[in-house]
Amino acid sequence: TETRTFTDEREARRFEQEARDNGKDVQVRESNGKFEVRVK
């Protein structure tokens, strides 16, 4: 599991989409204006 934290939602979404395109299981959590993207 890899976790990346972004402050920019667009960057978080781009990373999320890229991971999904690669067939990964992705979860995005938002807290305090930060976006935590977990990739399995």
Rank of each mutant, 00 (worst) to 15 (best):
N22S: 13
F15W: 09
E18M: 10
N32K: 06
K34I: 15
V37A: 02
E9T: 02
E2F: 13
E18V: 08
T7C: 11
D25Y: 11
E9H: 06
E30N: 07
Q17F: 05
R29P: 00
E30Q: 11
E36I: 15
R13A: 07
A19F: 04
A12S: 02
V39T: 08
S31H: 14
Q27F: 14
E9N: 03
F6E: 02
G23S: 03
R13L: 09
R13G: 04
V26T: 07
N22K: 13
R38Q: 13
E30Y: 15
V26L: 02
D8C: 15
D8I: 04
K40W: 15
V37W: 00
T3A: 06
G33L: 02
G33K: 03
Q27K: 07
D21G: 09
T5R: 05
V39C: 08
E2R: 06
T1H: 11
V39P: 02
S31Y: 15
T1S: 11
R14Y: 07
D8R: 02
G33T: 00
D25I: 13
E36S: 04
K34H: 10
R38H: 14
V28S: 04
N32H: 08
N22H: 10
E2Y: 15
K34W: 11
V39N: 02
G23E: 03
Q17A: 09
F35Q: 01
V37L: 03
Q17C: 10
A12D: 01
R29L: 14
R4I: 11
A12Y: 03
R38S: 14
K40A: 12
S31G: 07
R14C: 02
T3C: 15
R10F: 12
F35W: 15
R10H: 11
G23F: 05
A19W: 06
E36A: 03
R20P: 01
Q27W: 14
T5P: 03
V28R: 03
N32V: 04
R4Q: 08
R13F: 06
E2W: 13
R29T: 14
T5A: 07
Q17E: 07
V39D: 03
T7Q: 08
K24A: 12
T5V: 14
E2N: 08
D25K: 07
E2P: 06
S31P: 02
T1I: 12
A12G: 01
G23T: 01
R10A: 14
R10G: 13
E36V: 13
R20S: 04
G33R: 02
A19V: 05
T1W: 15
R4A: 06
N32F: 07
F15T: 02
D8M: 02
N22Q: 15
V28K: 02
E16G: 05
R38M: 14
K24E: 05
T5G: 03
K24R: 10
D8N: 10
K24N: 09
R14M: 11
R20T: 05
A12I: 00
N22E: 12
G33I: 00
E30H: 10
Q27D: 11
A12Q: 01
V37P: 00
K34L: 14
A19Y: 04
V37G: 00
E18I: 11
K24W: 15
T5C: 12
V37Q: 01
T1E: 13
D8Q: 04
R38W: 14
R13I: 06
E30F: 15
G23H: 06
R38A: 12
R10E: 12
N22V: 09
K40Y: 14
T5D: 05
R14T: 08
E2S: 08
E9V: 09
K24P: 01
G33E: 03
F15I: 03
R4T: 08
E2M: 11
T7Y: 12
K34R: 12
R13H: 07
T1F: 14
R14E: 11
K40E: 12
V39L: 06
A19Q: 14
E16K: 00
G23V: 02
V28W: 13
K24M: 14
T5F: 15
A19L: 11
K40P: 06
G23D: 04
R10Y: 11
V39E: 04
R4S: 06
E36W: 08
R20K: 09
D8S: 10
N22G: 09
F15Q: 02
R14A: 14
E9I: 10
N22I: 08
Q27S: 13
F6K: 00
N22W: 08
T5Q: 08
F35L: 04
E18H: 09
R20V: 07
K40D: 11
E2T: 11
R4Y: 15
F35M: 02
E30K: 10
E30T: 08
A19I: 04
T5W: 15
G33A: 02
S31R: 13
R4F: 15
G33V: 00
A19N: 08
R38G: 06
E36K: 03
T5Y: 15
V39F: 07
F15M: 04
T1Q: 10
E36P: 01
T5I: 14
D8K: 03
R20H: 05
V28H: 02
R29Q: 11
K40V: 13
T7D: 13
E16N: 00
F15R: 02
K40C: 15
D8Y: 04
R29E: 09
G23Q: 05
R38Y: 14
A19G: 04
T1V: 13
F6W: 03
D25Q: 11
V28M: 10
T7L: 10
D21N: 13
R20G: 03
T3F: 12
G23L: 03
K40Q: 13
K40R: 12
F15E: 02
N22R: 13
T3H: 09
G33P: 01
S31W: 14
E16R: 01
D25R: 08
V39W: 06
S31M: 14
E30I: 13
Q17W: 06
E16Q: 06
E2L: 12
R29M: 13
E18G: 05
F6T: 01
R4H: 14
E9K: 06
T7K: 07
K24T: 04
N22Y: 08
K40L: 14
E30R: 08
R14P: 01
Q27E: 15
F15G: 01
T3N: 07
E9R: 05
N32R: 05
T1P: 08
T7W: 12
T5N: 06
G33Q: 03
Q27R: 08
G23C: 07
V37N: 01
T7H: 09
R14V: 10
F6N: 00
Q17G: 05
T3G: 04
F35G: 01
V37H: 01
F35E: 01
N32W: 04
E36M: 08
K24Y: 15
F6P: 01
F6D: 03
E11Y: 03
D8H: 05
E30G: 06
R4V: 11
D25P: 05
D21M: 12
E9Y: 09
A12E: 00
D21T: 09
E2D: 09
G33W: 00
F15L: 03
T5L: 13
K24F: 15
V26F: 02
T3S: 08
E18P: 00
D25N: 09
E2C: 15
E11P: 02
E18S: 09
R10P: 06
A12F: 04
E11D: 10
K34A: 09
K34N: 09
T5K: 05
E11M: 06
V37E: 02
N22F: 08
G33S: 04
E16Y: 08
F6S: 01
S31F: 15
T7P: 05
V37Y: 00
D8F: 03
G33D: 04
D8W: 01
S31D: 10
D8T: 10
R13W: 06
Q27I: 13
D8A: 04
V39R: 02
R13S: 05
E11Q: 07
E18N: 08
E36Y: 14
F6Y: 06
K40N: 14
E18Y: 10
R4L: 10
F6L: 00
K34F: 13
R13D: 03
R14F: 07
Q17T: 07
R10N: 12
T3P: 04
V37C: 05
R13E: 04
R10T: 13
T3K: 06
A12K: 01
R10L: 13
E30A: 09
D25M: 10
T1M: 12
R29N: 10
V28Y: 11
V28P: 00
K34Y: 13
K24H: 13
R38F: 14
R4K: 10
F35H: 03
D25G: 05
R20I: 10
E11R: 03
E36L: 09
D21I: 10
